[in-house]
Write a protein that binds this DNA or RNA. Structure first.
Length: 274
DNA sequence: ATGTTTGTTCCGAT
DNA sequence: CATCGGAACAAACA
């Protein structure tokens, strides 16, 4: 689940809790695989001091004092939980990192039911390559409508698919893409080639509005609770979805169309989005 | 039992 | 040769 607002929330909370802390132990569960290999992962994190915690698209990126980067991608069902005790394991726990700050110990856990997620220890060079793989951040101020339009014009796909392409704009996932297109009154199957500057400007504003709202609500938690924050608490933005999972358009009450676009569930209002 | 799911990557087709 | 789109990855739930 986690898209930009969910990862943003996790990163913001982790910053408060863990910057300047020191890793004292790393435990990997049976048969779980980290990059570049469990032995190197554990060795590289031994006694590491957490210098900085940030986000690259939907990746959580933790810089340690050695110049390496501990990164997590949560994919569909990954969770980061921060516990104050390690007496009970969490469901689907794959990895636990014990950290100390101000003589207090925290247990950072990476849990992942479906195991599409990834825990990695990257070199400085690999971290740079990761950043370069991604386009400008969807809520950062480095993206201009001009640049966005230019990137879209180069593609021969539809706008819904383009929004999920992290190399064009980083951080948008399927749920927020549906809602942003509804807010912008754009049909999800619209070919990116026909976009005008004005339309792209509107879309960009709507994407940012939706994502920022998601951040204010501390992300979206669906009924399966795949996403919860680092304290195990659900987000609230699911109560503010516009079109995702809806039966009727909140604006005109027309029956929402549900279809698949590039294999992903797509909701739109046939009346408002043309 | 089959179809569905928040994401990404790889491979075959175009 | 570059780009696009579908399958695959794995697990739980309805």
């Amino acid at each position: 689940m986690p898209e930009l607002p969910e990862v943003h929330t996790i990163v913001a909370d982790l910053k408060k809790q863990l910057e300047k802390s020191r890793i004292i132990d790393v435990t990997i569960e049976n048969s779980y695989k980290t990059y570049p290999g469990n032995a190197a992962f554990i060795e590289g994190l031994k006694n590491a001091v957490i210098e900085k915690i940030g986000r690259v698209g939907k990746n959580i990126v933790i810089k340690i004092h050695t110049g390496s980067y501990l990164t997590f991608h949560l994919a569909m069902t990954g969770r980061i939980l921060l516990r104050t005790s390690n007496t009970t394991k969490d469901p689907w726990q794959r990895l636990e990192i014990a950290l100390v700050r101000d003589r207090k110990t925290h247990y950072l856990r990476f849990c992942d039911m479906r195991m599409f997620g990834k825990a990695s220890l990257l070199t400085g060079r690999e971290a740079k390559a990761l950043r370069e793989k991604y386009g400008p951040d969807a809520v950062g101020d480095e993206i201009s409508a001009d640049e966005f339009l230019h990137s879209l014009k180069k593609k021969r796909t539809n706008i819904k698919n383009a929004l999920l392409d992290q190399s064009i704009l980083a951080g948008v996932g399927n749920i927020y893409a549906n809602d942003a297109l509804w807010l912008a009154k754009i049909h999800p199957a619209t070919k990116t080639a026909v976009f005008t500057y004005k339309k792209v400007q509107t879309l960009l504003k709507c994407i940012q509005a939706i994502l920022k709202e998601g951040i204010l609500h501390r992300g979206s938690t669906l009924p399966d609770e795949a996403y919860v924050d680092i304290f195990g608490q659900p987000g609230k933005h699911q109560n503010y979805f516009r079109i995702y999972g809806k039966n009727n358009c909140p604006e005109c009450k027309t029956k929402v169309v549900f279809t698949k676009i590039n294999g992903r569930g797509t909701y739109f209002c046939p009346n408002c989005q043309k």
